[in-house]
Design a protein around this nucleic acid. Sequence first.
DNA 1: GTCTATAGACGGATAGAC
DNA 2: GTCTATCCGTCTATAGAC
Lengths: 222, 222
Amino acid sequence: MSTSDHTSIPAPPTKTRILDAAERLFASNGFRATSLRELTSAAEVNLAAVHYHFGSKEGLIRAVFARRLDPINRERLERLDTLELARRPGEPPVPLAGLIEAFVAPALELLGHPDGQAFPRLLGRLHSDPDRDKVRELLFEQFDELRRRFMPAFAAAAPHLDYTEICWRLHFVVGAMAHVMTCGDDLVWVSDGRIQNPTGREAIGRLVAFGAAGMLAAPPVR
Amino acid sequence: MSTSDHTSIPAPPTKTRILDAAERLFASNGFRATSLRELTSAAEVNLAAVHYHFGSKEGLIRAVFARRLDPINRERLERLDTLELARRPGEPPVPLAGLIEAFVAPALELLGHPDGQAFPRLLGRLHSDPDRDKVRELLFEQFDELRRRFMPAFAAAAPHLDYTEICWRLHFVVGAMAHVMTCGDDLVWVSDGRIQNPTGREAIGRLVAFGAAGMLAAPPVR
DNA sequence: GTCTATAGACGGATAGAC
DNA sequence: GTCTATCCGTCTATAGAC
């Protein structure tokens, strides 16, 4: 209070400035290709501040993921709760489209959002990134709970498929979702410019329609 | 001839040994994380041989992609030729499932193949890799031809969709395909071990069934 | 074509003053 | 909490002998 100017917007604290710059630079250039020197210059903080606040470069990337992923996965589970609580016993199971939307929407909604706009690239790339083991333990707990909650719901909603076929098709849905998060630019290219700035909202609607139809298809002959 | 032992299998030439090691290491650890020292040790060649044969590390990665991608994309176009030539004028268009298979099979078939087994990881990650610009020019020409040939075929096969909707759904199919190529391990995990060593053949059949059903779905309401 | 040796730059991490 | 200065390892690339 003593030295602050009560009319100016205070600059975010050092820790937040580092996280913001890290999210943006890791998303666009990758983890390994982003040096701490480049990162701290962009954040306008001292090089040593990263080690003070996060211990190491690896600790920083873990913090970057934790900050965004916690709320996303919490919302996924809350949406699933809502769907399941709205269903009375004896009624048909929660429909596939609802389950898919509960899973993909919380992640894709960040696409158009000004805050955390860069994070989807990072999250989508996570699945194929060679550095994913740096955040593996962090993610494992959360994703394991997602799996425990969503898999039975999908099994009930798709009684025409055996368990392995459901896994395959969810794998396809996750791949499509990740691709939208990482490669919006490719969409501009394949459409020859007819698609511009795809928003999270339209991505969600289209992916839910596509994914639900794919999940509903008869299983392929062996 | 003068010094070779005619009873032993000759070791592959230096250039091939470098390409093989590079493909394997780039696939598992990524481009930036793989040093030329590690690579040349694994290939049992001298460090300077990379620069002699490929000019630079960047030239090497371009050569790694060119070696595998040329035949894959050639086969995609040949399969499309076959489908279109088998169709007489006046008959219904080439079905969606056939088009999807023509596109995804040549890439996914490498999954179980002993030679070039590592390449799919590399290819699948390509879409989201921050280093993709290092091979962008190389890929652009080939993918542009794929787009020119496949897009009209999909448009004819999916008259219920407008052009942008087709682009979105192909984007989903490509994402699913890429995810299968990079993340077979995830499939083992989500299925709780019930799926082991997914082969290219079963991936193709399942993805074609899923993707064709997704493409056939009615477009979502705006 | 293949090797050794080394240049030249950059990386993450840390000590210690303030 | 923040800063400067620096350690020490690793990297790509190249020069030049063979």
